[in-house]
């Protein structure tokens, strides 16, 4: 089965006035259909960049990125737009940015459906599902939690195969945050939508099946079902999680010992 997202050696470089910033370096990643993934990592590590690449809003500077089997860098801008309209739903971090503030909830969902197919019934059902069925107020007048719930409904308006959310709960209180995550999970279960959520909230990552930690532009660690694993990178590089830094401080030397199911690293006293 085609993977929902497949990254092969994706590199992303930004240019500012004097510098070039390497946001992602050699990211290798496979996300299967229907998986729910949390992208963790400190700020500036490249999570948002990766998400924007998956949304088709940026083209990778190098490497290959496939969404649902299609190579994104081969698509024309028009085809990218169509893909975004039909197959990808995006929820941004700031609730206000996901919506047109002067439009009602229904109008916002309809706006998202403009590029694909207008399905009023589906729209109404979605709004009911997120608990905004009777909402008459304009989007700008809703609370943060209500806005973000609406944002999820909007993202799901076209029944996308891939749902991307950038820190959807960071500006919400606990209750609203939980509600939003619940909605996202529900979407994944019911429709088999692949979900990728960028977050630094541990609670959110616990609710999702798999966690991928991005550090300094690389995939550093992964977690499945609560267990953390380090990922061996392209050149064999491994990022030690912070809790092990005391045992094996960064910059120190270690010996590698072979084990039947892997390797052990022992400090080299010097």
């Amino acid at each position: 089965m085609t993977a929902a997202v497949r990254c092969d050696g994706v590199v992303q470089i930004y240019k500012t006035r004097d510098l070039e910033i390497v946001a992602l370096r050699d990211v290798d990643l496979v996300i299967a259909q229907g998986e729910t993934v949390a992208l963790l990592g400190p700020s500036g590590a490249g999570k948002s960049t990766l998400m924007w690449l998956m949304a088709g809003l940026l083209r990778p500077s190098a490497g290959r990125l496939r969404i649902n089997g299609t190579d994104v860098s081969r698509l024309s801008p028009g085809a990218l737009d169509r893909m975004r309209a039909a197959d990808i739903g995006v929820v941004l971090q700031n609730p206000g940015r996901n919506l047109i503030p002067y439009a009602t909830a229904a109008q916002n969902v309809a706006f998202a459906q403009r590029a694909a197919r207008t399905d009023r019934r589906r729209a109404a059902a979605l709004l009911d599902r997120v608990g905004l069925g009777g909402m008459r107020r304009r989007a700008g007048a809703m609370s943060g939690g209500e806005q973000q719930r609406l944002a999820v409904a909007v993202a799901l308006a076209n029944a996308p195969r891939l749902l991307l959310a950038d820190e959807p709960t960071s500006q919400l209180d606990d209750d609203s945050g939980r509600a939003v995550i619940g909605l996202i999970e529900q979407a994944a279960e019911e429709n088999g939508t692949t979900v990728v959520v960028v977050t630094h909230d541990a609670a959110v990552s616990r609710a999702l099946g798999r966690t991928i930690t991005i550090r300094d532009g690389k995939v550093g660690a992964e977690g499945r079902h609560g267990e953390e694993f380090v990922v061996v990178g392209r050149e064999g590089g491994v990022q030690l999680p912070p809790e092990f830094h005391e045992l094996l401080p960064p910059g120190s030397m270690a010996r590698v010992e072979a084990l039947p199911d892997g390797v052990a690293l022992r400090r080299a006293e010097s």
Partner: peptide, 16 residues
């Protein structure tokens, strides 16, 4: 600008 960005985010075509 924000709304126009939103339209593009939602995959609306160039003409739209």
């Amino acid at each position: 600008a924000p709304e126009i960005a939103l339209a593009r985010l939602r995959g609306q075509g160039r003409l739209r």
